[in-house]
Amino acid sequence: MTTTVPESQPRSAHQHGVRRIVLPVAVVLTVLFCLAPILWQLLTSFKTDAAIAEIPNVYFPRPDQLTLDQYQKLFERRPFFNYIFNSFLVSLASTVLALGIGAPAAYALARLKLQGERIMLAAVLIVTLFPPILLFLGLLDIVRYFNLGNNYLSLIIPYTAINLPLTILVMRSFFQQLPKDLEDAARVDGYSTPRMLLDIVLPMTIPALATTGILTFISAWNEFIFALTFITREDLKTVPVAGAQLGGASPFEIPFGPIAAATVLGTIPLVLLVLFFQRRIVQGLTSGAVKG
């Protein structure tokens, strides 16, 4: 040990120096690349109309080019909180449903020796390969048939269905890596099956549920085609549709400012959600159950 350390020091110090520069630069570039459109929207939503229209583009607005007018205009023209509420309700309901149906199904697929298990899994997988846009004409007919147009259910049901396969596949692989010994130990301890699922399995499953739940929630929140087609009543619209349909004072004006404000407001709930659940998603909750 002591003989090798001085030898390797210069080299590792050099490597360290390179890392110290390259790593942050790479991080900054990657983050910029990913966030640029969002940052642009954020910036636009705080600029005055004049600054938005100005050529060349204003990247660094002067203080007199900054304003909250765009948000004010947005709320004057449209009941935007209403849209957020609709989106929230629909997304939450389909997330809860997808988890409530998908997790038990995944558990059964992972733990029970079911006949035709492979066929079921193949079917689930094939459904995920279907582009939803191919389904939507058929779905429109179904929605009409059941008279579900302009009803939250017309969104909640398809969103749940579309997200179920992913939920099942992800949760199944999670349950498969969950040590079976724990459930056996619980049964020897005297837990009945429902209590075992509730008291032992569920607490260990929360990180996986949070992760898949967030994915479902985001995909439901951002969905556009179904929401555009199945909902026409103004007070039932969701954020993406309402944002896209923001009109100007005249047909020839594109209201860039309010659209940017709508985008920002529509994204904030998702950001908050992910930040809130981040702590829950921390991996390694099962560590310590079995020898690590």
Partner: peptide, 20 residues
């Protein structure tokens, strides 16, 4: 009888302690 009704106790190879 089910495991819980047999009044046996078991140490598992992986110990199987409830992590939470």
């Amino acid at each position: 009888l089910s495991p819980g009704d047999r009044n046996i106790a078991m140490v598992f190879q992986s110990y199987a302690l409830y992590p939470h």
